[in-house]
């Protein structure tokens, strides 16, 4: 097991329990203030839980949302810092990341762009060859054009090494094709936890004439009504086909997340 969390409470977080297998890639989603950063800080060992147990197997690296760095350190200094504070250090890997994204090595990080600083933070985290990598809003400082490339590169690294990756985001559109597991937090409560494939298989959308009740089985997550039609997003272990004039449609990960978040508001 890569990560094991049982009955954890801390600040906004209430009684969270889940397990993430090693080598899994998990998206942690939720509105701002839902407890994503608190949860990641607990997993990183930067905070102690008020109650419950947190266990991350192996060495953990954490990149905070605002990508803090010592202003006077150059990228080279930051990598030396990583080398001197970690049991394992892969200089080649860290330098490789910086050169791939064109980060100058000899300029103080206070004089670099937000994106360049983010790359230095990633390089330090990847250079320490962690067993568990925790990234808080990793793409927030990056130019939209390079987000896809950075995501692909990060996923490539963790796939090669069998690293357990947890990344938080509130940009739901960035999720598709990235994560194989989902954790959805709302106001400190874990609403959804599981494999993306299972979650997509157990949610379905019914669309049909205006109605107050869903035409098929399942717990209604979100109901939407317009003058002409009703739409129900339901959670059910085994979606069934519904009678005409209703149609059932599969949901995308984005639909699923947005529905749960909207209801939790």
């Amino acid at each position: 097991m890569g990560i094991h969390v049982e009955g954890v409470s801390k600040w906004v977080l209430r009684d969270c329990s889940f397990e993430l297998p090693s080598g899994s890639v998990t998206a942690l989603v939720g509105a701002n203030g839902a407890g994503k950063t608190t949860l990641l800080s607990l997993l990183a060992g930067l905070l102690s839980a008020d109650s419950g147990q947190v266990r991350a197997d192996g060495r953990v690296a954490f990149v905070a949302q605002d990508k803090p760095l010592y202003k006077h350190f150059t990228a080279t200094d930051a990598l030396s810092f990583g080398k001197h504070t970690n049991k394992v250090w892969d200089q080649e890997r860290a330098v490789g990341w910086l050169s791939r994204f064109g980060v100058p090595l000899k300029r103080a990080s206070g004089r670099l762009s937000g994106g360049q600083r983010a790359h230095i933070s990633f390089a330090v985290a990847l250079g320490s060859r962690p067993d568990v990598l925790l990234l808080d809003e990793p793409l927030s400082e990056l130019d939209p054009l390079v987000r896809k490339e950075v995501t692909a590169a990060l996923l490539g690294f963790v796939a090669d090494e069998g690293t357990t990756l947890v990344l938080s985001t509130h940009v739901v559109s960035e999720l598709s094709g990235v994560a194989d597991r989902l954790l959805l937090l709302a106001q400190g409560e874990l609403l959804v936890s599981g494999e993306v494939d299972d979650l997509l298989g157990s949610h379905v959308s019914y669309v049909g004439p205006v109605s107050t009740a869903a035409p098929g089985p399942g717990d209604v997550v979100l109901a939407r009504h317009t003058a002409a039609q009703s739409q129900f997003l339901v959670r059910t272990p085994s979606p069934v086909s519904v009678a005409e004039p209703w149609v059932s449609r599969p949901v995308s990960l984005e639909d699923l997340v947005l529905a749960h978040l909207e209801v939790a508001e």
Binding site: D66, Y70, T85, K87, S128
Partner: peptide
Amino acid sequence: EERTYLVAWGQDVSPARW
């Protein structure tokens, strides 16, 4: 102030040792 404690205390070295 500069939030670098998240870096300093987020490596293999424990904060107490740091």
